[in-house]
Amino acid sequence: MCGRFALTLPDDAVARLFDARLSNDSATAHGQNICPTQPVLTILSKAGERHAGPMRWGFLPHWYTTETDGPLLINARAETIATKPAFAQAVRRRRCLIPATGFYEWTKDAEGARLPWYIYPPEGGVLAFAGVWQVWGAEDTRQATCAIVTCAANDRLKALHHRMPVILSPQDWPKWLGEEGHGAAPLMRPAPDDALRFHRVGTAINSNRASGDGLIDPLPLGTG
């Protein structure tokens, strides 16, 4: 799964990376502790043009009458996304990219304490999570919402968690965004083992209120 991630680059820089036009309404969450229900930067394609803009991280199916009318759908499993009523239409017609500079997973020690790990590309840069989106609500409640697609973890990340986000390489972006027709299902696979690195970080990130620039710093050697 993916329940927390980081995006430390400004929106305009990310939009340029994805060759997308940045929305005027670009009030998105940034920093090293982006959490569910926050507005996250997304990339989608309309009429052959890419657009970058905010969506609520937490997919709201059309039958929800309020934002809390059902479970918080921050992830969509690749194995069942095409058959789940909440996501079936979205994965066929409404796919997006969700940029990130890294994300987090947790293990537990012998006493059950949650130990956070930061996962990121070896050379830095930006990851592109596969996402699906849905416009929900009417009139003053109308908003775009999204979920991150997940798959089984690759062999390297299995030590931390059995799931991981679907991470798309630049050559796969046009297919996922629907710019090269249909048939995006084969893209929903684990990233190669060498595509990511990880290290332990401090437990401050366990709080969704944590902020600052040191959350992704590796723990000093010998720290438990």
Rank of each mutant, 00 (worst) to 15 (best):
C96H: 08
L160N: 04
L17I: 12
A110N: 07
K46Q: 15
F59L: 15
W173S: 09
G125N: 01
R4H: 04
A13L: 12
Y64E: 08
R189C: 07
M1G: 08
D217W: 00
T203M: 13
I34C: 01
A90G: 06
R156D: 13
N154F: 09
R114A: 14
R163A: 05
N24I: 09
A138N: 12
P99L: 03
P54H: 05
D69C: 05
N154D: 05
C146N: 05
R92W: 04
P122G: 07
C96M: 04
P170K: 04
A20Q: 03
P190I: 01
L215F: 05
R92A: 14
K158N: 11
P71L: 05
L196A: 02
D194V: 02
W63R: 11
D172T: 07
A88C: 12
N208F: 10
I205V: 15
Q32T: 09
R94N: 11
F129G: 03
T37Q: 04
H30T: 11
I216C: 08
A191P: 01
E139P: 04
L196N: 00
A6M: 01
L60K: 10
V166M: 09
Q171I: 11
G112E: 07
D140C: 10
H182G: 14
Q171F: 13
N206A: 05
Y64H: 11
G183C: 07
A76R: 02
D155G: 07
Q143P: 06
R142F: 08
P122S: 02
P121S: 02
K108G: 01
A128Q: 03
G212N: 01
R77Y: 11
G131I: 11
G212V: 09
H30S: 15
I216R: 01
L72D: 07
P71V: 06
G131L: 09
A138H: 14
C151P: 03
A20P: 07
Y118E: 02
E67S: 14
